[in-house]
């Protein structure tokens, strides 16, 4: 019960703090919806069937939100809280490390869910997007994508000493990943060598494949390969984080 009470308070406080950060609000809620309109209205040629295209664009923009949270928000929060010794102060109270980090991750997860919900509603209402697969397996895929990306990018707070360094590393990862993982540009429009030698080695690529597949109604069983890769990334990330994570 103690752990439950601690987690609820940590999460609700974290969400309150998030609400007071205009920047974070912009990246999670406004930017993805803006990209949705931009892609649909500007980048997609007029004759393309929007009702079909939207079912590629919406799930990949959802991965954009997950990537933003896991590459930027989570590492930023951890590095900042470590720098001001807030993490250490929390550790000095009767709360387990897993509760502290789990609560921080869960509050970022909740924010991501809200961002994705807003994007999904916009895509459905404005562009007639429709989830062809089952909602349950789509949600399961989303949770898996979030967890494995969150875990693998936990190496950022291990290497970055300052929030500024974390942000620089995030930037360095974020942009190439966005262009080579099929988030902005579909993989089949990219040069062959990128698709063959770069994309498969980027974790985000597999999150995009999984989310797009599940959205378009491909059964989870046919996506086993992506699921296994993401599970592998999750385990790898957790092992690295457990070995390199620093509280101060």
């Amino acid at each position: 019960m103690m752990i439950f009470r601690q987690s609820v308070k940590l999460i609700s406080t974290e969400l309150k703090l998030f609400r007071r950060e205009p920047e974070a609000l912009f990246f999670t809620f406004i930017l993805p919806v803006f990209f949705l309109f931009l892609t649909m209205e500007v980048f997609i040629p007029g004759e393309a069937p929007k009702a079909i295209v939207i079912n590629y664009v919406a799930p990949s923009l959802m991965v954009l939100i997950i990537a933003g949270t896991t590459i930027y928000s989570v590492p930023q929060t951890i590095v900042h809280y470590r720098k001001i010794k807030f993490l250490k102060r929390l550790k000095g109270s009767p709360v387990t490390p897993v509760t502290i980090l789990g609560s921080l991750a869960l509050s970022d997860f909740i924010v991501t869910v809200l961002g994705i919900a807003l994007l999904a509603v916009t895509a459905v209402l404005v562009y007639d997007a429709s989830l062809a697969g089952s909602l349950l397996s789509f949600l399961a895929g989303f949770v898996l994508a979030f967890l494995s990306l969150a875990a693998i990018f936990l190496f950022i707070p291990a290497v970055a000493r300052s929030p500024r360094a974390a942000s620089a590393i995030g930037m360095f990862i974020y942009f190439p990943v966005m262009f080579f993982s099929g988030v902005f540009i579909p993989l089949d429009m990219l040069p062959d060598w990128i698709v063959r030698y770069i994309s498969p080695y980027l974790p985000v690529t597999h999150a995009v494949e999984l989310m797009q597949g599940l959205w378009q109604g491909i059964p989870l069983l046919d996506l086993t390969r992506e699921v296994l890769i993401l599970l592998g990334i999750l385990c790898l990330g957790l092992v690295i984080a457990a070995r390199t994570f620093r509280w101060e």
């Binding site: 406080t13 309150k16 703090l17 809280y81 001001i84 010794k85 807030f86 250490k88 102060r89």
Partner: peptide, 8 residues
């Protein structure tokens, strides 16, 4: 030198 989040 322990601090807390700015917006708490």
């Amino acid at each position: 030198e322990g601090k807390f989040p700015d917006r708490i």
